[in-house]
């Protein structure tokens, strides 16, 4: 049940032969994008979140064939020339990484949230709702909410 798909991953063009039974998470991990974590495999935890055409999706519940022709972003591609993205830096500044398993998925959820709310005033409640699809068992979320706030405030300046 093999098929070829072409997509871009972190701005690089890829053509991969995939088995149609695979999730996008399986395929990305197989090709070395191991920032994509599989926690639950059923859409509950967000550890596998990636951006597809800038929209956050859980790659464990996304058939790899659907990625054909699309533009995928994973956490690997967010830092440019050794420099962390503003979100990544904010997570670091607020101490939002403990065991780190949830972090890549959360970074993508936050990245999409900040891109969508550019220049807007957002409440903590909106930030929490916007991250409801990502579980973190370590940090208690407070730092994460502050990291997002910090990025949105910086965007406004």
């Amino acid at each position: 049940m093999n098929r070829n798909i072409s997509c871009t991953v972190n701005s690089k063009s890829m053509t991969w032969q995939i088995d149609i039974r695979m999730s996008l998470a399986d395929v990305l991990r197989e090709h070395g994008y191991t920032s994509v974590k599989e926690g639950c495999g059923v859409g509950e935890c967000g550890a596998c979140a990636v951006l597809i055409d800038d929209v956050a999706v859980d790659s464990c519940l996304y058939l790899a064939v659907w990625a054909d022709g699309r533009n995928i972003r994973t956490t690997e591609g967010e830092s440019k020339e050794g420099k962390l993205s503003p979100i990544q830096q904010a997570y670091l500044d607020t101490g939002s990484v403990q065991c780190g398993f949830c972090t890549p998925g959360l970074i993508m959820a936050s990245t999409s949230f900040v891109e969508q709310h550019k220049g807007q005033k957002v409440s903590r409640e909106q930030i929490r709702k916007g991250h409801a699809g990502n579980l973190c068992r370590c940090t208690g979320y407070d730092g994460i909410v502050r990291a997002v706030e910090q990025c949105i405030d910086a965007e406004k300046q």
């Binding site: 859409g43 859980d58 996304y62 999409s112 949230f113 991250h131 409801a132 699809g133 990502n134």
Partner: peptide, 9 residues
């Protein structure tokens, strides 16, 4: 429904 990633698909 669900969270953002679920509602997106």
């Amino acid at each position: 429904i669900g969270g953002p990633q679920v509602r997106n698909v």
